[in-house]
């Protein structure tokens, strides 16, 4: 094996090293300039906007689970916190700019993340994973049962305020998509910078050997809480985008355990400890049901049972998780990386 491949492997497990940001920038350019020329509300509303929100949540989880090795089964709870916090800030502080609302949503999630990250200081592995379930169930319960969070709305389904950016109304699918794209791009850039420096190395060190990290002077507890906060910030903002730009309703029900699993599956399929992996995995998860229902329609005729497709999708997803963990633990990201090396070699 050439050392280029080995280096790529090392990087695929975590660190982009000193690589340039040219590739990601070109991708961003395509998404920001070329794709908005397409005239299809469906593309933006049903595919790209949820894709971006899921990507951002997965990116947040990947910082925590992929890089720092702290497995969380409570991502959806932090999405819910972000969504409801964003809603409440925009509702209760008249004239608060949308971006500030999103930032507050993320910060609220970060605070909650630190609180629920405290057990990680004593617990590891399964015990931590189980304790994150407490977050999941408690947050969902609190948002359902404490009516202040939903502004005492009894219907259980509340709508976000109209979205404005400056004087610019975000009232079309493309505009909402562009909002998501902008937020996701900035946060992704920051995450790439974060993991490529000393802090990123410290995260991986904590993951790979807590003792080794501690002996070298990594402040393990502080590092864990820090990444819980950052991860929750990202996931919280993702939840706000999901509710505001994609669903355009805010309800606790959508942020259930299945959503948490979904985000976890995104990073397993996309690649643990990989920024790119979060996007590849999210694309896969968003597109998979669409492909399966198309395939169902073709194979079984138009009258097929959509419940059947759900079940098949479930089985398919479960099988993929197992296959990826077994055959390609570094996920789609590693597959793509290898393709690129092969192409460069020829």
């Amino acid at each position: 094996m050439s050392s280029a491949i080995l280096e790529r492997q090392a990087n695929s497990q975590g660190l982009p090293g000193l690589k340039s940001f040219r590739g990601p920038f070109l991708v961003l350019l395509v998404f920001a300039v070329v794709i908005p020329q397409v005239h299809s509300d469906y593309l933006f509303d049903a595919i790209l906007t949820p894709f971006l929100a899921i990507s951002l949540a997965a990116l947040g989880l990947n910082l925590l689970t992929g890089y720092a090795g702290q497995v969380s089964l409570g991502s959806a709870a932090f999405m819910a916190v972000g969504a409801f916090a964003g809603y409440n800030f925009l509702l209760r502080i008249p004239g608060l700019p949308l971006l500030a609302g999103l930032a507050f949503a993320g910060l609220t999630a970060a605070v909650i993340g630190i609180v629920f990250g405290l057990p990680s200081l004593r617990l590891r592995g399964f015990y931590l994973a189980v304790s994150t379930l407490a977050t999941q169930f408690f947050v969902q319960w609190a948002l359902t049962n404490i009516s202040w969070f939903s502004n005492d709305d009894t219907s259980g389904v509340i709508s976000p305020p109209p979205l404005h950016l400056g004087g610019f109304a975000l009232d079309s699918p493309v505009r909402r998509y562009l909002l998501c794209l902008g937020v996701v791009a900035v946060l992704t850039f920051l995450a790439m910078r974060l993991v490529s420096g000393q802090t990123g190395r410290a995260l991986i060190a904590v993951r790979d050997s807590e003792l080794g990290a501690r002996v070298l002077g990594v402040k393990v507890l502080r590092t864990k809480l820090f990444i819980f906060a950052v991860s929750s910030f990202y996931i919280g903002v993702a939840g706000a985008l999901w509710s505001f730009a994609y669903l355009r309703t805010i309800e606790p029900d959508g942020f259930d355990l299945d959503r948490s699993f979904q985000i976890l599956f995104v990073i397993i399929i996309g690649g643990l400890a990989s920024i790119r992996g979060a996007f590849l995995g999210a694309a896969f998860i968003v597109v998979l049901p669409l492909l399966l229902s198309r395939a169902g329609a073709i194979l079984l005729g138009p009258g097929f049972d959509s419940g059947l497709v759900d079940l098949v999708q479930k089985i398919f997803l479960g099988a993929l998780i197992i296959l990826f963990l077994r055959l390609e633990p570094a996920g789609l990201s590693a597959l793509v990386g290898r393709l690129r090396i092969r192409r460069n070699a020829t």
Partner: peptide
């Protein structure tokens, strides 16, 4: 494989069995 990986495998497994 590390225990937490095996745990995630059984998560996938539960999807397959339920489905």
């Amino acid at each position: 494989q590390p225990p937490i990986t095996l745990f995630m495998v059984t998560l996938g497994l539960s999807y397959i069995i339920e489905g």
